[in-house]
Design a protein around this nucleic acid. Structure first.
Length: 272
DNA sequence: CTGTTAACCTGAGTGC
DNA sequence: TGCACTCAGGTTAACA
């Protein structure tokens, strides 16, 4: 469940369920994810407690001592489930963390594009986090910033918005939705976006991501057996997954193309 | 430097 | 039923 609103929804949920509980067991079943789960994960985590969970882009950072952090990324198919007591091990449950009150945290990831890593010292200096662009809700992410980084960029508007060095958290679903709401054609070159369009994009990104978080994120192709992790934003999707169907604004047939191997849906009449 | 492409991996769905 | 093929919420690394 991995764009920003889904990751944030998980963060909020987990913060209620696993903080300040002693870790009593750590089981790694499959070490080979995007990168290998560190060999010393169990040793490091055992008898510790997670003190806080923060999110940076689509990464979750769980602090368990002054200078030690667990870094999680869900990739395309990753899920984090928390169970109130022991459970039958799920398929692709690569990591299980048990707490003293019998709460269980499970990391499930069929496609293994996710990551479970340890970080020492300042997590924001970690190579995976250091070069990330601004958070979409931060003051640094504003029209002037977006306009300035778009200069000279020939890349199309959609891939530009999905580039985590430009802004974090916008994945394929929300990129499609944002451009539809901003009435911008996904193939427009970034350098051709006007200052006003950049302002519009900034505003819409913030609004749609906030709204999606409010609804607990978007849930597609998902069974609802987790604890509270199924979101409801999918009912508000206006273009994603609707290629060939009619535009909600003008009834024109929505076009579906590929940009950077990702399906891109838009309205040729509404989006210019 | 920018921009494009393949690669990582499994499962679900479709068409023959 | 089986097989071949396409597609899927992400990101890096290797190219031109």
């Amino acid at each position: 469940m991995p764009e920003l609103p889904e990751v944030e929804s998980i963060r909020l949920e987990l913060s209620k369920q696993i903080l300040n509980k002693k870790i009593t067991d750590v089981i790694v079943r499959q070490r080979k994810l995007r990168w290998e789960i560190p060999q010393n994960l169990r040793t490091k985590l055992l008898n510790q407690q997670f003190q806080s969970i923060i999110r940076r882009g689509k990464y979750l950072i769980l602090q368990f001592s002054k200078n030690n952090f667990l870094l999680l990324h869900l990739g395309m198919s990753g899920k984090l489930f928390s169970f109130p007591k022991n459970h039958q091990t799920l398929k692709h449950e690569h990591l299980t963390i048990a707490f003293a009150d019998n709460t269980i945290l499970s990391f499930i990831d069929p496609r293994k594009f996710g990551a479970v890593l340890l970080i020492q010292n300042d997590p924001m200096q970690h190579s995976l986090l250091k070069l990330l662009g601004p958070e979409p809700f931060s003051p640094e992410f504003n029209a002037e910033y977006l306009y300035s980084v778009a200069q000279n960029k020939k890349i199309n508007a959609k891939q530009f918005l999905m580039n985590s060095k430009i802004v974090v958290g916008v994945g394929n679903i929300y990129a499609n939705e944002i451009l539809f709401l901003a009435k911008i054609h996904p193939k427009r070159q970034a350098r051709d976006l006007s200052k006003n369009e950049c302002a519009k994009i900034v505003k819409i990104i913030s609004e749609i991501l906030q709204k999606a978080i409010k609804f607990g994120g978007t849930t597609i192709r998902d069974f609802a057996n987790s604890y509270g992790n199924a979101g409801n934003f999918q009912q508000y999707l206006q273009v994603y997954g609707r290629g060939g169907l009619l535009c909600v604004n003008c009834n024109n047939k929505l076009t579906e193309i590929k940009l950077g191997q990702r399906s891109t849906v838009f309205c040729t009449i509404c989006q210019k």
